[in-house]
């Protein structure tokens, strides 16, 4: 059987963005990847958000850049928080 891919490698990505809609999360991933930022889609942590099933991890030190990229591309998001990978 073909090995199933993991959603993404989140090692060292200590920031997390949650979204209202998975469309926004996937669009955001595409935008961040295009600019060369390290990012990974992960299952949305329920304790943080009851919204869509996916969240996006990124490096916390890139927070400002991530936020401005979202503004530039008119991507709606719910929250950006510091949450090191357990």
């Amino acid at each position: 059987m073909r090995r199933r891919k993991k959603t993404g490698d989140a090692t060292g990505l200590d920031g997390i963005v949650t979204f209202f809609s998975s469309h926004h999360a996937l669009h955001a991933e595409e935008v961040l990847k295009k600019t060369g930022l390290r990012t990974a889609l992960v299952p949305g942590p329920r304790e943080i958000s009851p919204n869509c099933g996916v969240a996006l991890r990124f490096q916390w030190e890139e927070k400002k850049r991530v936020e401005s990229l979202f503004a530039e591309n008119r991507i709606q998001y719910e929250r950006v928080i510091f949450l090191p990978v357990a």
Binding site: R4, K5, K6, T7, S21, S22, H23, A25, L26, H27, E30, L41, V42, P43, G44, C52, G53, V54, A55
Partner: peptide
């Protein structure tokens, strides 16, 4: 099923839709 879970098949389905939408 797109946008319903964080697992591989759901995320890939979501990406399929995003690609067409874009």
């Amino acid at each position: 099923n797109p946008g319903r879970s964080g697992h591989f098949r759901s995320v890939e389905a979501g990406k399929t839709i995003l690609r067409t939408r874009t």
